[in-house]
Nucleic acid binder design. Structure first.
Lengths: 242, 242
DNA sequence: CTACTATTAAAACGAACGTTTGATTTAACA
DNA sequence: TGTTAAATCAAACGTTCGTTTTAATAGTAG
Protein backbone atom coordinates (compact mmCIF):
# COMPACT_ATOMS: atom_id res chain seq x y z
CA UNK A 1 0.00 0.00 0.00
CA UNK A 2 0.81 3.69 -0.19
CA UNK A 3 3.04 2.91 -3.09
CA UNK A 4 3.12 6.45 -4.41
CA UNK A 5 3.58 7.83 -0.93
CA UNK A 6 6.58 5.73 -0.03
CA UNK A 7 8.58 6.93 -3.02
CA UNK A 8 9.11 10.40 -1.61
CA UNK A 9 9.23 11.50 1.97
CA UNK A 10 6.59 13.79 3.34
CA UNK A 11 8.64 16.97 3.11
CA UNK A 12 9.44 16.62 -0.55
CA UNK A 13 5.92 15.58 -1.44
CA UNK A 14 4.52 18.67 0.26
CA UNK A 15 6.94 20.88 -1.67
CA UNK A 16 5.92 19.34 -4.99
CA UNK A 17 2.21 19.66 -4.31
CA UNK A 18 2.53 23.19 -2.94
CA UNK A 19 4.49 24.27 -5.99
CA UNK A 20 1.74 23.03 -8.26
CA UNK A 21 -1.14 24.43 -6.23
CA UNK A 22 0.46 27.83 -5.63
CA UNK A 23 0.88 28.05 -9.38
CA UNK A 24 -2.72 27.09 -10.09
CA UNK A 25 -4.45 29.20 -7.42
CA UNK A 26 -1.94 31.70 -6.10
CA UNK A 27 -0.60 31.97 -2.56
CA UNK A 28 -3.68 33.33 -0.85
CA UNK A 29 -5.93 31.15 -2.95
CA UNK A 30 -4.25 27.96 -1.79
CA UNK A 31 -5.20 26.69 1.67
CA UNK A 32 -3.25 24.39 3.92
CA UNK A 33 -6.05 21.88 3.63
CA UNK A 34 -5.79 21.87 -0.14
CA UNK A 35 -2.07 21.22 0.10
CA UNK A 36 -2.13 18.52 2.75
CA UNK A 37 -5.16 16.93 1.12
CA UNK A 38 -3.53 16.67 -2.30
CA UNK A 39 -0.26 15.50 -0.76
CA UNK A 40 -2.12 12.90 1.33
CA UNK A 41 -0.48 14.00 4.55
CA UNK A 42 -1.89 15.21 7.81
CA UNK A 43 -2.96 18.83 8.11
CA UNK A 44 -0.35 19.49 10.78
CA UNK A 45 2.48 18.20 8.61
CA UNK A 46 3.18 21.54 6.96
CA UNK A 47 3.52 23.38 10.23
CA UNK A 48 5.62 20.56 11.64
CA UNK A 49 8.05 20.41 8.74
CA UNK A 50 8.16 24.02 7.63
CA UNK A 51 6.79 26.06 10.51
CA UNK A 52 4.19 28.11 8.65
CA UNK A 53 2.57 28.66 5.31
CA UNK A 54 4.87 31.57 4.56
CA UNK A 55 7.91 29.47 5.33
CA UNK A 56 6.57 26.76 3.05
CA UNK A 57 6.36 29.18 0.14
CA UNK A 58 9.88 30.37 0.83
CA UNK A 59 11.16 26.80 0.85
CA UNK A 60 9.32 26.01 -2.37
CA UNK A 61 11.25 28.80 -4.05
CA UNK A 62 14.53 28.27 -2.27
CA UNK A 63 14.71 24.72 -3.55
CA UNK A 64 14.54 25.92 -7.17
CA UNK A 65 16.17 29.33 -7.00
CA UNK A 66 19.26 27.97 -5.31
CA UNK A 67 19.90 25.88 -8.39
CA UNK A 68 18.79 28.52 -10.91
CA UNK A 69 20.79 31.46 -9.60
CA UNK A 70 23.78 29.27 -8.83
CA UNK A 71 23.76 28.10 -12.42
CA UNK A 72 23.42 31.68 -13.61
CA UNK A 73 26.45 32.76 -11.63
CA UNK A 74 28.43 29.79 -12.88
CA UNK A 75 27.49 30.59 -16.50
CA UNK A 76 28.61 34.18 -16.08
CA UNK A 77 31.83 33.08 -14.41
CA UNK A 78 32.59 30.79 -17.34
CA UNK A 79 31.91 33.55 -19.87
CA UNK A 80 34.06 36.09 -18.08
CA UNK A 81 36.88 33.63 -17.62
CA UNK A 82 36.73 32.84 -21.32
CA UNK A 83 36.66 36.53 -22.27
CA UNK A 84 39.76 37.10 -20.14
CA UNK A 85 38.96 40.61 -18.99
CA UNK A 86 37.33 41.82 -22.18
CA UNK A 87 33.71 42.99 -22.04
CA UNK A 88 31.18 40.35 -22.95
CA UNK A 89 28.84 40.62 -25.88
CA UNK A 90 25.35 41.66 -24.79
CA UNK A 91 23.77 38.59 -26.29
CA UNK A 92 26.12 36.41 -24.28
CA UNK A 93 24.95 38.02 -21.07
CA UNK A 94 21.29 37.68 -21.98
CA UNK A 95 21.75 34.12 -23.15
CA UNK A 96 23.40 33.22 -19.86
CA UNK A 97 20.65 34.86 -17.83
CA UNK A 98 17.52 33.90 -19.72
CA UNK A 99 18.86 30.76 -21.34
CA UNK A 100 19.56 29.25 -17.95
CA UNK A 101 15.99 29.98 -16.96
CA UNK A 102 14.51 28.50 -20.09
CA UNK A 103 16.67 25.41 -19.89
CA UNK A 104 15.32 24.96 -16.39
CA UNK A 105 11.86 24.84 -17.92
CA UNK A 106 12.93 21.89 -20.02
CA UNK A 107 14.06 19.85 -17.03
CA UNK A 108 11.13 18.36 -15.19
CA UNK A 109 13.32 17.31 -12.27
CA UNK A 110 14.00 21.00 -11.63
CA UNK A 111 10.35 21.91 -11.61
CA UNK A 112 10.01 22.45 -15.33
CA UNK A 113 7.44 24.83 -16.69
CA UNK A 114 5.34 24.50 -13.56
CA UNK A 115 7.95 26.27 -11.51
CA UNK A 116 8.72 28.81 -14.23
CA UNK A 117 5.09 29.82 -14.39
CA UNK A 118 4.86 29.95 -10.63
CA UNK A 119 7.94 32.14 -10.56
CA UNK A 120 6.53 34.54 -13.12
CA UNK A 121 3.24 34.80 -11.30
CA UNK A 122 4.69 35.20 -7.86
CA UNK A 123 6.97 38.04 -8.91
CA UNK A 124 3.88 40.22 -9.19
CA UNK A 125 2.30 39.07 -5.93
CA UNK A 126 1.84 42.07 -3.70
CA UNK A 127 2.46 40.35 -0.35
CA UNK A 128 5.30 42.07 1.44
CA UNK A 129 7.11 39.00 2.73
CA UNK A 130 7.24 37.59 -0.81
CA UNK A 131 8.79 40.74 -2.22
CA UNK A 132 11.49 41.02 0.41
CA UNK A 133 12.26 37.33 0.03
CA UNK A 134 12.75 37.64 -3.71
CA UNK A 135 14.84 40.75 -3.33
CA UNK A 136 17.22 38.84 -1.11
CA UNK A 137 17.35 35.75 -3.28
CA UNK A 138 18.01 37.71 -6.47
CA UNK A 139 20.33 40.39 -5.15
CA UNK A 140 23.67 38.80 -6.01
CA UNK A 141 22.71 37.54 -9.46
CA UNK A 142 21.17 40.83 -10.55
CA UNK A 143 24.16 42.76 -9.30
CA UNK A 144 26.60 40.60 -11.23
CA UNK A 145 24.58 40.64 -14.45
CA UNK A 146 23.96 44.36 -14.24
CA UNK A 147 27.68 44.96 -14.01
CA UNK A 148 28.27 42.67 -16.97
CA UNK A 149 25.71 44.57 -19.04
CA UNK A 150 27.20 47.92 -18.07
CA UNK A 151 30.57 46.72 -19.33
CA UNK A 152 29.02 45.22 -22.44
CA UNK A 153 27.23 48.47 -23.31
CA UNK A 154 29.52 51.28 -22.17
CA UNK A 155 27.86 53.90 -24.38
CA UNK A 156 24.32 53.23 -23.23
CA UNK A 157 23.22 55.17 -20.15
CA UNK A 158 23.09 52.88 -17.16
CA UNK A 159 19.56 53.88 -16.29
CA UNK A 160 18.54 52.91 -19.80
CA UNK A 161 20.10 49.49 -19.40
CA UNK A 162 18.30 48.91 -16.12
CA UNK A 163 15.03 50.01 -17.69
CA UNK A 164 15.44 47.61 -20.58
CA UNK A 165 16.51 44.78 -18.32
CA UNK A 166 13.39 45.52 -16.35
CA UNK A 167 11.23 45.24 -19.46
CA UNK A 168 12.94 42.06 -20.52
CA UNK A 169 12.36 40.44 -17.15
CA UNK A 170 8.74 41.46 -17.49
CA UNK A 171 8.32 40.10 -20.99
CA UNK A 172 9.92 36.84 -19.98
CA UNK A 173 7.97 36.50 -16.77
CA UNK A 174 4.70 37.29 -18.37
CA UNK A 175 5.26 35.23 -21.47
CA UNK A 176 5.71 32.21 -19.23
CA UNK A 177 3.23 32.93 -16.47
CA UNK A 178 0.52 34.44 -18.61
CA UNK A 179 0.55 31.85 -21.33
CA UNK A 180 -2.88 30.49 -20.58
CA UNK A 181 -4.34 33.88 -19.80
CA UNK A 182 -3.29 35.55 -23.00
CA UNK A 183 -3.98 32.49 -25.01
CA UNK A 184 -7.61 33.19 -24.27
CA UNK A 185 -7.24 36.90 -24.77
CA UNK A 186 -5.35 36.66 -28.04
CA UNK A 187 -7.79 34.20 -29.48
CA UNK A 188 -6.63 30.61 -29.27
CA UNK A 189 -4.94 30.49 -32.67
CA UNK A 190 -1.89 28.90 -31.12
CA UNK A 191 -3.39 25.59 -30.21
CA UNK A 192 0.05 24.20 -29.62
CA UNK A 193 -0.08 26.18 -26.41
CA UNK A 194 -3.03 24.13 -25.23
CA UNK A 195 -0.81 21.48 -23.72
CA UNK A 196 0.46 23.89 -21.13
CA UNK A 197 -3.01 24.73 -20.04
CA UNK A 198 -3.74 22.01 -17.52
CA UNK A 199 -2.48 23.43 -14.25
CA UNK A 200 -4.08 20.72 -12.13
CA UNK A 201 -2.68 17.75 -14.01
CA UNK A 202 0.31 16.26 -12.30
CA UNK A 203 0.58 13.05 -14.29
CA UNK A 204 3.74 12.54 -16.28
CA UNK A 205 1.81 12.41 -19.54
CA UNK A 206 2.29 16.09 -20.33
CA UNK A 207 6.01 16.16 -19.69
CA UNK A 208 7.14 15.69 -23.26
CA UNK A 209 4.68 18.30 -24.49
CA UNK A 210 5.85 20.77 -21.89
CA UNK A 211 9.47 20.25 -22.81
CA UNK A 212 8.79 20.88 -26.47
CA UNK A 213 6.84 23.93 -25.48
CA UNK A 214 9.70 25.26 -23.41
CA UNK A 215 12.13 24.87 -26.28
CA UNK A 216 9.76 26.60 -28.64
CA UNK A 217 9.20 29.39 -26.13
CA UNK A 218 12.92 29.86 -25.70
CA UNK A 219 13.55 30.08 -29.43
CA UNK A 220 10.85 32.68 -29.90
CA UNK A 221 11.53 34.70 -26.83
CA UNK A 222 15.27 35.18 -27.12
CA UNK A 223 15.26 37.29 -30.28
CA UNK A 224 12.43 39.31 -28.86
CA UNK A 225 14.48 40.07 -25.79
CA UNK A 226 17.47 40.99 -27.88
CA UNK A 227 15.18 43.19 -29.92
CA UNK A 228 14.22 44.93 -26.70
CA UNK A 229 17.83 45.54 -25.88
CA UNK A 230 18.65 46.70 -29.39
CA UNK A 231 15.73 49.07 -29.78
CA UNK A 232 16.47 52.71 -30.62
CA UNK A 233 16.38 55.34 -27.95
CA UNK A 234 13.15 57.18 -27.12
CA UNK A 235 11.78 59.68 -29.65
CA UNK A 236 13.27 57.73 -32.52
CA UNK A 237 10.41 55.51 -33.46
CA UNK A 238 11.13 55.13 -37.12
CA UNK A 239 9.36 52.96 -39.59
CA UNK A 240 11.76 50.38 -40.94
CA UNK A 241 9.63 47.34 -40.37
CA UNK A 242 8.50 45.18 -43.31
CA UNK B 1 -18.58 67.13 8.78
CA UNK B 2 -17.99 64.25 6.41
CA UNK B 3 -16.63 66.69 3.91
CA UNK B 4 -14.69 64.12 1.97
CA UNK B 5 -17.57 61.67 2.13
CA UNK B 6 -20.24 63.97 0.78
CA UNK B 7 -18.29 64.66 -2.39
CA UNK B 8 -18.80 61.22 -3.84
CA UNK B 9 -21.63 58.82 -3.34
CA UNK B 10 -21.06 55.52 -1.62
CA UNK B 11 -20.87 53.42 -4.76
CA UNK B 12 -18.17 55.47 -6.38
CA UNK B 13 -16.16 55.76 -3.20
CA UNK B 14 -16.18 52.00 -2.77
CA UNK B 15 -14.95 51.56 -6.34
CA UNK B 16 -12.09 54.00 -5.79
CA UNK B 17 -10.98 52.40 -2.55
CA UNK B 18 -11.33 48.86 -3.89
CA UNK B 19 -9.24 49.75 -6.92
CA UNK B 20 -6.47 51.01 -4.71
CA UNK B 21 -6.57 48.15 -2.22
CA UNK B 22 -6.83 45.40 -4.84
CA UNK B 23 -3.74 46.90 -6.39
CA UNK B 24 -1.85 47.02 -3.11
CA UNK B 25 -2.82 43.61 -1.71
CA UNK B 26 -4.35 41.57 -4.54
CA UNK B 27 -7.87 40.25 -4.74
CA UNK B 28 -7.65 37.50 -2.16
CA UNK B 29 -5.49 39.65 0.06
CA UNK B 30 -8.08 42.39 0.30
CA UNK B 31 -10.99 41.78 2.65
CA UNK B 32 -14.40 43.37 2.60
CA UNK B 33 -13.64 44.89 5.98
CA UNK B 34 -10.50 46.54 4.64
CA UNK B 35 -12.48 48.03 1.77
CA UNK B 36 -15.48 49.25 3.74
CA UNK B 37 -13.22 50.46 6.52
CA UNK B 38 -11.06 52.57 4.22
CA UNK B 39 -14.12 53.85 2.35
CA UNK B 40 -15.79 54.71 5.65
CA UNK B 41 -18.97 52.88 4.74
CA UNK B 42 -20.84 50.08 6.42
CA UNK B 43 -19.64 46.53 5.93
CA UNK B 44 -22.88 45.56 4.22
CA UNK B 45 -22.60 48.37 1.68
CA UNK B 46 -20.58 46.35 -0.82
CA UNK B 47 -23.05 43.49 -0.91
CA UNK B 48 -25.90 45.95 -1.09
CA UNK B 49 -24.52 47.97 -3.99
CA UNK B 50 -22.63 45.30 -5.92
CA UNK B 51 -23.95 41.95 -4.74
CA UNK B 52 -20.66 40.24 -3.92
CA UNK B 53 -16.93 40.70 -3.75
CA UNK B 54 -16.46 39.13 -7.17
CA UNK B 55 -19.02 41.46 -8.68
CA UNK B 56 -17.23 44.39 -7.06
CA UNK B 57 -13.97 43.45 -8.76
CA UNK B 58 -15.75 43.10 -12.06
CA UNK B 59 -17.31 46.54 -11.66
CA UNK B 60 -13.98 48.06 -10.71
CA UNK B 61 -12.59 46.90 -14.03
CA UNK B 62 -15.68 47.52 -16.08
CA UNK B 63 -15.64 51.17 -15.12
CA UNK B 64 -12.13 51.62 -16.55
CA UNK B 65 -12.03 49.06 -19.33
CA UNK B 66 -15.19 50.39 -20.91
CA UNK B 67 -13.40 53.68 -21.46
CA UNK B 68 -10.02 52.16 -22.37
CA UNK B 69 -11.19 49.65 -24.95
CA UNK B 70 -13.76 52.02 -26.35
CA UNK B 71 -10.99 54.55 -26.87
CA UNK B 72 -8.83 51.88 -28.46
CA UNK B 73 -11.54 50.98 -30.93
CA UNK B 74 -12.14 54.62 -31.75
CA UNK B 75 -8.41 55.18 -32.31
CA UNK B 76 -8.25 52.23 -34.68
CA UNK B 77 -11.37 53.38 -36.48
CA UNK B 78 -9.82 56.79 -37.02
CA UNK B 79 -6.60 55.30 -38.35
CA UNK B 80 -8.35 52.96 -40.74
CA UNK B 81 -10.63 55.68 -41.99
CA UNK B 82 -7.63 57.90 -42.59
CA UNK B 83 -5.75 55.08 -44.39
CA UNK B 84 -8.76 54.59 -46.64
CA UNK B 85 -8.44 50.85 -47.12
CA UNK B 86 -4.66 50.68 -47.18
CA UNK B 87 -2.87 48.60 -44.52
CA UNK B 88 -1.73 50.56 -41.51
CA UNK B 89 1.86 50.88 -40.46
CA UNK B 90 2.74 48.53 -37.58
CA UNK B 91 3.83 51.38 -35.38
CA UNK B 92 0.48 53.07 -35.89
CA UNK B 93 -1.31 50.00 -34.62
CA UNK B 94 0.94 49.65 -31.61
CA UNK B 95 0.74 53.32 -30.85
CA UNK B 96 -3.02 53.18 -30.90
CA UNK B 97 -3.12 50.14 -28.67
CA UNK B 98 -0.42 50.90 -26.11
CA UNK B 99 -0.49 54.65 -26.44
CA UNK B 100 -4.11 54.73 -25.39
CA UNK B 101 -3.23 52.67 -22.36
CA UNK B 102 -0.32 54.85 -21.37
CA UNK B 103 -2.28 58.02 -21.87
CA UNK B 104 -4.83 56.56 -19.50
CA UNK B 105 -2.06 56.37 -16.94
CA UNK B 106 -1.55 60.08 -17.22
CA UNK B 107 -5.16 60.89 -16.45
CA UNK B 108 -5.90 60.59 -12.78
CA UNK B 109 -9.63 60.88 -13.36
CA UNK B 110 -9.45 57.62 -15.31
CA UNK B 111 -7.64 55.79 -12.56
CA UNK B 112 -4.15 56.81 -13.58
CA UNK B 113 -1.22 54.61 -12.78
CA UNK B 114 -3.08 52.98 -9.93
CA UNK B 115 -5.48 51.32 -12.32
CA UNK B 116 -2.76 50.47 -14.84
CA UNK B 117 -0.78 48.66 -12.20
CA UNK B 118 -3.88 46.89 -10.95
CA UNK B 119 -4.65 45.83 -14.49
CA UNK B 120 -1.19 44.42 -15.04
CA UNK B 121 -1.25 42.53 -11.79
CA UNK B 122 -4.73 41.14 -12.18
CA UNK B 123 -4.03 39.77 -15.65
CA UNK B 124 -1.85 37.14 -14.00
CA UNK B 125 -4.28 36.32 -11.18
CA UNK B 126 -5.16 32.65 -11.39
CA UNK B 127 -8.78 32.90 -10.22
CA UNK B 128 -11.07 31.47 -12.87
CA UNK B 129 -13.80 34.09 -12.75
CA UNK B 130 -11.20 36.81 -13.30
CA UNK B 131 -9.80 35.12 -16.38
CA UNK B 132 -13.14 34.54 -18.04
CA UNK B 133 -14.16 38.09 -17.26
CA UNK B 134 -11.07 39.55 -18.91
CA UNK B 135 -11.40 37.29 -21.91
CA UNK B 136 -14.88 38.67 -22.50
CA UNK B 137 -13.92 42.29 -21.93
CA UNK B 138 -10.93 42.14 -24.27
CA UNK B 139 -12.33 39.91 -27.02
CA UNK B 140 -13.46 42.60 -29.45
CA UNK B 141 -10.43 44.87 -29.09
CA UNK B 142 -7.92 42.06 -29.49
CA UNK B 143 -9.74 40.71 -32.51
CA UNK B 144 -9.74 44.08 -34.24
CA UNK B 145 -6.10 44.83 -33.48
CA UNK B 146 -4.97 41.36 -34.46
CA UNK B 147 -6.62 41.80 -37.83
CA UNK B 148 -4.97 45.19 -38.24
CA UNK B 149 -1.55 43.71 -37.44
CA UNK B 150 -2.10 40.84 -39.87
CA UNK B 151 -2.81 43.36 -42.60
CA UNK B 152 0.11 45.53 -41.56
CA UNK B 153 2.53 42.59 -41.67
CA UNK B 154 1.34 40.34 -44.49
CA UNK B 155 4.70 38.55 -44.84
CA UNK B 156 5.06 37.62 -41.17
CA UNK B 157 3.42 34.35 -40.15
CA UNK B 158 0.28 35.02 -38.18
CA UNK B 159 1.32 32.79 -35.33
CA UNK B 160 4.51 34.82 -35.07
CA UNK B 161 2.55 38.03 -34.84
CA UNK B 162 0.34 36.64 -32.10
CA UNK B 163 3.40 35.45 -30.21
CA UNK B 164 5.02 38.84 -30.38
CA UNK B 165 1.84 40.62 -29.43
CA UNK B 166 1.67 38.28 -26.49
CA UNK B 167 5.20 39.20 -25.43
CA UNK B 168 4.50 42.89 -25.87
CA UNK B 169 1.40 42.70 -23.72
CA UNK B 170 3.51 40.94 -21.14
CA UNK B 171 6.33 43.44 -21.22
CA UNK B 172 3.86 46.31 -20.92
CA UNK B 173 1.86 44.70 -18.17
CA UNK B 174 4.86 43.77 -16.18
CA UNK B 175 6.70 47.01 -16.70
CA UNK B 176 3.77 48.80 -15.15
CA UNK B 177 2.66 46.32 -12.52
CA UNK B 178 6.09 45.17 -11.45
CA UNK B 179 7.68 48.57 -11.17
CA UNK B 180 8.14 48.45 -7.44
CA UNK B 181 9.05 44.78 -7.41
CA UNK B 182 11.82 45.01 -9.94
CA UNK B 183 12.98 48.30 -8.60
CA UNK B 184 14.06 46.33 -5.57
CA UNK B 185 15.40 43.45 -7.61
CA UNK B 186 17.33 45.57 -10.05
CA UNK B 187 18.88 47.63 -7.34
CA UNK B 188 17.18 50.96 -6.78
CA UNK B 189 19.32 52.97 -9.17
CA UNK B 190 16.24 54.56 -10.63
CA UNK B 191 15.20 56.54 -7.63
CA UNK B 192 12.81 58.51 -9.76
CA UNK B 193 10.65 55.40 -9.57
CA UNK B 194 10.34 55.80 -5.83
CA UNK B 195 7.35 58.07 -6.09
CA UNK B 196 5.26 55.28 -7.53
CA UNK B 197 6.08 53.07 -4.64
CA UNK B 198 3.50 54.10 -2.08
CA UNK B 199 0.54 51.85 -2.81
CA UNK B 200 -1.32 52.85 0.35
CA UNK B 201 -1.15 56.59 -0.13
CA UNK B 202 -4.32 58.00 -1.60
CA UNK B 203 -3.61 61.66 -1.01
CA UNK B 204 -3.36 63.88 -4.06
CA UNK B 205 0.23 64.78 -3.32
CA UNK B 206 1.74 62.10 -5.52
CA UNK B 207 -0.42 62.78 -8.52
CA UNK B 208 1.97 65.07 -10.33
CA UNK B 209 4.83 62.65 -9.76
CA UNK B 210 2.79 59.78 -11.09
CA UNK B 211 1.85 61.64 -14.21
CA UNK B 212 5.45 62.48 -14.99
CA UNK B 213 6.33 58.88 -14.38
CA UNK B 214 3.67 57.68 -16.77
CA UNK B 215 4.98 59.92 -19.52
CA UNK B 216 8.51 58.75 -18.93
CA UNK B 217 7.39 55.15 -18.90
CA UNK B 218 5.55 55.60 -22.16
CA UNK B 219 8.53 57.15 -23.88
CA UNK B 220 10.82 54.37 -22.83
CA UNK B 221 8.47 51.50 -23.36
CA UNK B 222 7.23 52.26 -26.86
CA UNK B 223 10.54 51.76 -28.66
CA UNK B 224 11.11 48.62 -26.66
CA UNK B 225 7.82 47.25 -27.84
CA UNK B 226 8.60 48.18 -31.43
CA UNK B 227 11.94 46.47 -30.96
CA UNK B 228 10.07 43.38 -29.95
CA UNK B 229 8.01 43.52 -33.09
CA UNK B 230 11.01 44.21 -35.27
CA UNK B 231 13.25 41.49 -33.85
CA UNK B 232 14.68 38.93 -36.28
CA UNK B 233 13.18 35.50 -36.54
CA UNK B 234 14.41 32.66 -34.33
CA UNK B 235 17.86 31.20 -34.94
CA UNK B 236 19.13 34.51 -36.26
CA UNK B 237 20.55 36.04 -33.16
CA UNK B 238 23.25 38.10 -34.68
CA UNK B 239 25.54 40.50 -32.97
CA UNK B 240 24.93 43.97 -34.33
CA UNK B 241 24.48 45.71 -31.04
CA UNK B 242 26.78 48.48 -29.78
C1' DC C 1 13.01 -4.37 26.94
C1' DT C 2 13.51 0.45 27.88
C1' DA C 3 14.07 5.17 26.93
C1' DC C 4 14.13 8.53 23.61
C1' DT C 5 13.44 11.05 19.40
C1' DA C 6 11.04 11.87 15.27
C1' DT C 7 6.95 11.70 12.92
C1' DT C 8 1.99 11.23 12.19
C1' DA C 9 -2.84 11.57 13.72
C1' DA C 10 -7.24 13.56 15.31
C1' DA C 11 -9.33 17.30 17.32
C1' DA C 12 -9.89 21.73 18.51
C1' DC C 13 -8.39 26.67 18.84
C1' DG C 14 -9.44 31.69 18.06
C1' DA C 15 -9.55 34.77 14.33
C1' DA C 16 -11.02 36.35 10.05
C1' DC C 17 -13.62 35.54 6.04
C1' DG C 18 -17.93 36.83 2.80
C1' DT C 19 -22.59 37.24 3.43
C1' DT C 20 -27.28 37.92 5.47
C1' DT C 21 -30.69 39.66 8.52
C1' DG C 22 -33.80 42.94 10.49
C1' DA C 23 -34.23 47.36 12.31
C1' DT C 24 -33.41 52.22 11.53
C1' DT C 25 -32.48 56.36 9.09
C1' DT C 26 -32.70 59.20 4.97
C1' DA C 27 -34.80 61.19 0.96
C1' DA C 28 -38.42 61.97 -2.40
C1' DC C 29 -42.99 62.56 -3.61
C1' DA C 30 -48.13 62.82 -2.91
C1' DT D 1 -47.45 65.61 6.61
C1' DG D 2 -47.87 60.85 5.76
C1' DT D 3 -46.26 57.11 2.72
C1' DT D 4 -42.91 54.60 0.41
C1' DA D 5 -38.68 53.17 -1.40
C1' DA D 6 -33.72 53.54 -1.01
C1' DA D 7 -29.89 53.47 1.80
C1' DT D 8 -27.37 52.70 6.03
C1' DC D 9 -26.54 50.48 10.23
C1' DA D 10 -25.21 47.11 14.05
C1' DA D 11 -25.16 42.47 14.80
C1' DA D 12 -24.80 37.98 13.86
C1' DC D 13 -24.66 34.09 10.52
C1' DG D 14 -22.09 29.76 9.17
C1' DT D 15 -17.71 28.66 7.12
C1' DT D 16 -13.00 28.48 6.44
C1' DC D 17 -8.61 30.06 7.57
C1' DG D 18 -3.66 29.02 9.71
C1' DT D 19 -2.11 27.22 13.74
C1' DT D 20 -1.75 24.60 18.10
C1' DT D 21 -2.41 20.95 21.23
C1' DT D 22 -2.42 16.38 22.82
C1' DA D 23 -2.12 11.68 22.01
C1' DA D 24 -0.66 7.74 19.35
C1' DT D 25 2.79 5.55 16.44
C1' DA D 26 6.99 4.08 14.43
C1' DG D 27 12.07 3.73 14.57
C1' DT D 28 16.48 3.43 16.96
C1' DA D 29 20.37 3.27 20.30
C1' DG D 30 21.67 1.74 24.88
Amino acid sequence: MSETKANLDTRERILDVAERLFMAHGYEGTSMRMITGAAEVNLAAVNYHFGSKEALLRDVFRRRLAWLNGERLRALDALEKQADGAPLKPSQVLEAFFGTLLRMGEDESLGGMTFLRLLGRTLTEPAEFIRTFFAGEYAEVIERYKRALFRALPDVPRAEIVWRLHFMLGAMSYAIAGTDVLQVVTGCELNELKELNEPDESAGAGVAGNRDEAVRLAERLMPFLLGGLRAPLPHFIQENLQ
